[in-house]
């Protein structure tokens, strides 16, 4: 469901004026996106649900600071990403060792990176699990770009970094993900370019 930014702004104003149902509507509009970000960034449903819960509590308490300069969905994504980072810091990424294999299936232990098969076609299950092996900053950018399908300028607003940095993180993240999926061995004799090369 795509929410109308102007409607979201109105809902924020209504909530601040004392209409609790307005916040309920905001939650109903955005919780699927927030949970999706948290699930793909954090890696398991239980922690993703916790991060989503914290994101909405944080959003609720900061709604008075929402000025409407950016769309509410942009602002809410930023809150969600911060909630993910908080949870990852708090739990020292231990839960990342238990990764969902697919929707509704039991979790499995993540073993060592998959063996290299240059011609192997990756399954979606592998992509979800391999995301855990992508560095945090790259993973967050990847999720926003390729899971949430957000434009780079919006991701730039969410992460508060230049668009060029976003694109660099997405590119490096995609390569890291492909390698984590076991698509190919890292080329020898060349180090990874830094973001500055973007």
């Amino acid at each position: 469901m795509v929410s109308d930014p102007s409607d979201d702004r109105e809902l924020v104003d209504r909530y601040l004026a004392g209409d609790a149902a307005a916040f309920t509507t905001l939650v109903e509009r955005h919780q699927a996106r927030v949970y999706s970000v948290c699930l793909r960034v954090i890696g398991n449903p239980e922690d993703a649900a916790d991060a989503t819960q914290e994101a909405f509590i944080s959003a609720l308490r900061k709604l008075g600071q929402f000025r409407g300069d950016s769309a509410f969905s942009t602002w809410m994504h930023r809150v969600a990403v911060n909630s993910c980072y908080d949870l990852l810091r708090k739990r020292s990424r231990q839960p990342m060792l238990h990764l969902p294999t697919d929707q509704g299936e039991p979790e499995r232990e993540l073993g060592p990176p998959m063996p290299d098969h240059a011609d192997e076609v990756a399954s979606t299950r592998d992509a979800a699990a391999a995301l855990a092996l992508v560095p945090d900053e790259f993973r967050v950018a990847l999720v926003l770009a390729d899971v949430q399908d957000l434009p780079y300028d919006q991701i730039s607003e969410i992460l508060d970094v230049p668009v060029g940095t976003v694109k660099s993180r997405v590119f490096r993240g995609r390569i890291a993900l492909a390698r984590a999926m076991g698509i190919e061995r890292e080329p020898r004799g060349r180090s990874q370019p830094s973001e500055d090369e973007a």
């Binding site: 939650v27 919780q31 819960q53 979606t124 899971v147 390569i175 492909a178 390698r179």
Partner: peptide, 22 residues
């Protein structure tokens, strides 16, 4: 590699959203 990764991520199914998230 980037094309493979992008296509894999974009084909991930949307997760079921648990109840009581907020």
């Amino acid at each position: 590699l980037a094309i493979v990764a992008r296509d894999a991520l974009r084909s991930l199914p949307a997760p079921d959203v648990p109840s009581g998230l907020a």
